[in-house]
Design a protein around this nucleic acid. Structure first.
Length: 604
DNA sequence: GTAGGGTTAG
């Protein structure tokens, strides 16, 4: 029969008592608690537990809670749980601290079970309990339970509690219910920087970056508080998701002025933002300034370089981080494989796939295999890619990505046979149906099989399958230019088209041929052309922007600026990083000029 | 004993 934790300790007790005899006999409740607070390893913990047991103080809930908290702190949740089971009168602190322990140990489900168990007892939850269990729902993105807990909060008299409401905002955000998050946020009588950050994150992580920036503006305007590193990292993330280079740079200025530029998390967000906003060289400059980059900034930079086709740079960074004994994670390998895929480094990619588990103990999963399928597919090794895809066990979402990847590769290399098989899989499983139809149709078009193209189009019309037009956008100076696939009426459209033709000629001159360049159209139907254009419109718009922005307007204005010390430092650093034509505009926004001196506060 | 941030393949 299994012995209880306390029974086990009784067996261990005699030797412990003997070795610490003199101290133990004089213990008081306060003495035990002080001793427990000092415990920093399991051996001293076990010994103290034994003494508490012997003294009889274990029946005292307050002392037992300290004991349990100590187990939780040492990550011995199993022992802490056993202690709770054996407590005579566990109270709200006993339940809540164990719940928090499970959440911190990555076992939020057990925390939720404990909450249920507690509700079945006579103990009522308090604000700490609610914040903890809501956090568990948030980690699991469990909206159903989250709503139930929310109702419980409403009747518990804690609906005005700042921490509970902030955790509700966060929970709804993580469960992709932004409207509910906003409703809770709006209902709050009192908010702090955490509640505002939770709302910003809720918007940013649910593809509503504009709203995230609006609410950040509101925060600055209403509160005049300085944002902290959490808020700034979230705002930078929102800029990244929108491709808003200027807003990103302005926020970068705020980061420097507020003194968070050496923060690892903020720097990672900046590296990622500059990549997504169109300039990997800024990312590199920010990255170079990080004194001791951890795995995440390294990964951001590896992924960033990979996206720009700088595979060798990605692999060099990977080697550098290994040499610095920084352990890669699963995302790092996604970046490495992505880099190999986009730079045609197939053999090296396969080598990295094999080393993942063998050397680093990371088991490749669907996302890694999807990268490898993409890598083999891009390089024309379609049969191997197909074989690999068939051998992977995936759930529906990962499957959609995997087969979608193979389908694109089949189209790229005109492998109608594989494209047909793969589209069938996608359409039958009701995944990416419209995309599958269009890509299959384009594959037929590339092969000159117009009969099948037309029959697919009729089938799409008959079954009512509609492909949302692709959309991309780019921010140039203070304007956002939006491009929809197939929309020829875009502003300054004729300039875009003429620039595109120039680029096309330039690329041809340098030896690019075929549709791999993305700008050279093959003889396909109108819709297929539009799809190819939309894939590249972002880069196109960037190129378009670069030749349209007037330069050289900056130096004179700058000389007249009188800046406070903080702003001057921010300006010096940021001008190392960004180009001057953007900087002046940003710098003007960093400052308020009153009576000839500089006051800061409004980032926008 | 409680709430918030960064990297992920087509």
């Amino acid at each position: 029969m299994k012995k209880s934790l306390n029974q086990n300790l009784l067996f261990a007790l005699p030797s412990m008592v003997l070795s610490r005899q003199n101290k133990l006999y004089f213990h008081t409740k306060t003495g035990f608690i002080e001793q427990l607070q000092r415990c920093n390893n399991v051996i001293s913990m076990t010994s103290t537990h034994a003494s508490v047991l012997k003294s009889g103080f274990l029946n005292d809930t307050f002392t037992a809670n300290h004991l349990m908290n100590c187990y939780v702190r040492l990550q011995e949740t199993h022992d802490a749980h056993q202690l709770l089971d054996e407590m005579l009168e566990p109270n709200v602190v006993s339940y809540t601290s164990l719940m928090a322990g499970y959440v911190n140990m990555g076992q939020p489900k057990i925390a939720m079970c404990l909450f249920q168990m507690m509700n079945g007892s006579l103990v009522s939850p308090n604000e700490f309990t609610f914040a903890t269990v809501i956090n568990a729902c948030s980690i699991l993105a469990d909206l159903r339970t989250g709503k139930k807990v929310h109702s419980h909060v409403e009747v518990s008299g804690l609906r005005d509690n700042l921490v509970v409401c902030s955790s509700l905002v966060d929970m709804y955000g993580k469960c992709n219910d932004v409207d509910r998050a906003r409703r809770v946020f709006d209902s709050m009588g009192c908010r702090n920087v955490v509640s505002w950050t939770s709302m910003i994150v809720a918007y940013a992580q649910n593809a509503q970056g504009d709203e995230a920036l609006n609410i950040f503006r509101e925060f600055n305007y209403l509160l005049g508080d300085r944002p902290n590193q959490f808020m700034l990292a979230s705002v930078i993330n929102a800029c990244a998701s929108l491709g808003r280079l200027i807003s990103g740079k302005v926020t970068h200025g705020a980061v420097i002025r507020c003194g968070y530029d050496s923060n690892d998390v903020v720097a990672s967000a900046l590296v990622d933002m500059y990549t997504k906003c169109g300039d990997v060289s800024y990312s590199d400059k920010v990255f170079q300034r990080i004194l001791k980059p951890s795995v995440i900034p390294y990964t951001s930079m590896i992924v960033g370089a990979a996206k720009y086709g700088l595979g060798r740079l990605s692999l060099g960074l990977f080697e550098e981080m290994i040499a610095r004994r920084i352990k890669p994670n699963d995302v790092t390998f996604v970046g490495v494989l992505h880099a190999c895929s986009h730079s045609g480094l197939v053999d090296e990619g396969l080598k990295h796939l094999n080393s993942m588990y063998e050397i680093y103990g990371i088991k490749p999963d669907a996302k890694h295999y999807t990268c490898v399928v993409d890598m083999l597919g891009r390089s024309g090794r379609l049969d191997e890619a197909y074989q690999l895809a068939k051998s992977i066990q995936v759930d529906a979402n990962a499957g959609a990505l995997l087969w979608g990847t193979l389908l694109s590769a089949s189209r790229l290399h005109g492998r109608v046979d594989i494209a047909v098989e793969v589209s069938k899989k996608l359409i039958e499983s009701n995944q990416q149906v419209a995309g599958a139809y269009v890509t299959l149709s384009n594959t037929y078009a590339l092969a000159g099989d117009w009969e099948n193209v037309h029959s697919l189009r009729s089938e799409m019309n008959r079954t009512g399958v509609y492909k949302e037009p692709g959309c991309s956008w780019v921010e140039i100076k203070d304007r956002t230019y939006v491009f929809y696939a197939g929309d020829k009426s875009i502003e300054r459209g004729s300039e875009v088209w003429s620039l595109m033709r120039k680029l096309e000629q330039e690329m041809k001159k340098r030896g690019y041929v075929g549709e791999n360049t993305g700008l050279v159209f093959v003889d396909v139907e109108e819709e297929a052309k539009e799809e190819i254009l939309s894939m590249h419109s972002e880069r196109l718009a960037l190129a378009f922007g670069l030749i349209s922005i007037p330069k050289g307007i900056t130096i004179r204005i700058m000389k007249n600026l009188r800046m406070c010390k903080d702003c001057h430092e921010a300006f010096k650093q940021i001008s190392d990083i960004v180009e001057r034509d953007f900087v002046v505009r940003d710098i003007n926004r960093f400052h308020h000029f009153k009576n000839g001196s500089c006051t800061c506060g409004d980032f926008w």
